[in-house]
Amino acid sequence: MNLFRLFGDLSHLASIFILLQKIQSTRSCRGISFKTQALYATVFIARYLDLFYEWVSLYNFTMKVFFIASSCYILYLMKYKYRPTHDPSIDTFRVEYLLGPCVVLALLFHYKFTVPELLWSFSIFLESVAILPQLFLLQRTGEAETITTHYLAALGAYRALYIPNWIYRYFTEDMVDPIAVTAGLVQTALYLDFFYVYVTKVLQGQKFELPA
C-alpha cells in the first residue's frame, strides 16, 4: 500500500458517501444516472467475486464488501425508494454500446483465459467507461447540483490517484499491469472536461453550468 492508492481508495469511499448524502438530503436522485450506477454495481460484482476464494487483507476485504453493498443499496434507492425522482427520459445513453465492446476487449486482453480473470478484465474495461451515461446526462441537462459535482470529482480523483500509484509500484515493486493502466488512463481522461469546469466554476463558488 502506498499513499497514492490509499488516498485514491479514500476518495472512492468519499464519493459514495457524498452520493448517499446527496440522495438522502435532497430526497431525490435527480441528476444521477441510474445506468452509470448499474454499471458500477456490475463492475464491483464482476471484479470482487474473488472475495469468496482469495484472502488479501482485512482492508481489501472490507472495501470490496462495502463497494458491492453500497452500489446495490444505491440501485435500490434509485429504483424503489426515490423512484419518482428519477427521470429515465434524460438517462438515455445506450449501455449496450459499452457492454458489448467491453466483453470483446476482455476476450482479447486478459492475463489468463479463466472465468475470474476474464471477469476481472471485463470489469476493468467497463469501469473505465461506466461514467459515460452520467456525463452524457450532465451534458444533456447542462447543469448539476453542487453536491453532485463533488461526487463526480471524488470519483474521478480516485482513478487519477491510481496513476501515480502504478508509477510508484513500477519503480518500487517492479510491477506493471498494462490492462489496468491503459483503462485507468482512459477513465481519467474522460473526466478532464468535467474537472476543468469543476475547478474553474464550482471551486470558485459558482454553479456548475456547461457553456451553451
Binding site: 500500500m1 488479501v56 491510481y162 510491477m175
Partner: peptide, 10 residues
C-alpha cells in the same frame, strides 16, 4: 507474484 499484487488493488 504480479498477479497477486494486481489483486490487492481495488
Amino acid at each position: 507474484p504480479v498477479e497477486q499484487k494486481r489483486h490487492d488493488e481495488l
